[in-house]
Amino acid sequence: MTDRNRRFLLKARPNGMPKTSDFALVEEALPDLQPGQFLIRNHYASLDPAIRGWLDDAPSYMPPVALGDPVRASTVGVVAESKAEGFKAGDWVMGLNAIEEYSMAQAGGFSQLIDIGNVSSPTHFLSVMGAVGLTAYFGVTEILKPEAGQTMLVSGAAGAVGSLVGQLGKQAGCRVIGIAGGPAKCARLTDDYGFDAAIDYRGKSAEALSDEIGAAAPKGIDLVFENVGGIGLDATLLHLNRFARVALCGLISEYNSEHYGARNLWQLIVHSATVRGFLISEFLDRFAEGAAAMAKLVGEGRLRFDEHIEEGIDNALPAFLRLFEGSNQGKMILKLI
């Protein structure tokens, strides 16, 4: 136990792609623990594209990270000290905290106890059994509601969420097409995750992407799980079937630039299609159900997932930027201890 805490702070609002000068790595004294609080020694932090949106001073589903505060992130760690009922030293917990070695939390907040005895690594609570897995699970089962024989397209398909979405679609009996960046990731989609077809978006115009989507889905697309936005979404909209459903999970291609703005939204009218944006927090009261379902699939060997772990709080920014470069090979997680 120490009385010092290393923290990754937001120093300035990023303009475009975040850079080193936007952040500061500092060491601060730990505050005294107050009644009802407990201190978490964070072992791992989840690095997600959503963090980029929290760095802007703009209206969103969560307040922006304040300048001078540590960058918000989901973490998994161990209770180091507690003055809160229900949490004792040595308990493993997960919650929405920050990229820092220690976090103060309190009962009734986002932190919840986890049992790591049934998993091979605590990191699984930040990937397949955490927000990533639950986003895929509820996005597919509650938003898209796939039926056997339908065609599903997944953008950002080689990413942590997309790769799970595609596998869930296959298990529902869909033909699944994935869009990813580069030959290696496309090969992973078909060879490792069981997608029926993979399309490499890199270096292609919206027209070229549209042609490839049309070739991969000659009968059209019934279901879309959208993670990327931009020209890829525009190209996809041209191939919707009647009453198609689009689950809008993210727009990662637009997080560090001006919003592209889909040009082909009129196709929603043409095909009586639906776009439904969603947040995993909608299903907060069903997290245990979703985690159990994903754990069951993993235990049965029916779900493949990958984790990309970088080490050290000093590597927080380069690891985070890999999400936007597309150079991570699985769920990006930062090991803090």
Rank of each mutant, 00 (worst) to 15 (best):
A247M: 08
H239E: 02
V246F: 13
H239G: 06
I231C: 03
F225Q: 03
D234H: 01
S253Y: 05
I231Y: 01
E254Q: 15
F243G: 09
A215S: 14
D234I: 00
P218N: 09
N227K: 07
G230T: 02
V224Y: 05
Y255S: 08
L223E: 14
G229C: 03
S253H: 02
H239C: 06
I231L: 10
L240R: 09
L223Q: 14
T236Y: 12
G229W: 04
D234E: 00
L238Y: 07
A217H: 10
R242E: 15
Y255G: 06
V224A: 08
L237F: 08
L251E: 10
A217N: 09
A215I: 09
V224E: 05
L223F: 10
V224K: 11
E254D: 12
S257P: 06
G220D: 03
V228H: 11
G232K: 01
N256Q: 15
A235V: 03
L233F: 09
R245H: 12
F243T: 13
G230C: 08
A235L: 07
I252F: 14
G230H: 00
P218A: 12
Y255W: 11
I252E: 13
D222H: 04
I252K: 15
E226G: 05
F225M: 08
G220S: 07
C249E: 05
G220M: 05
E254L: 04
I252R: 13
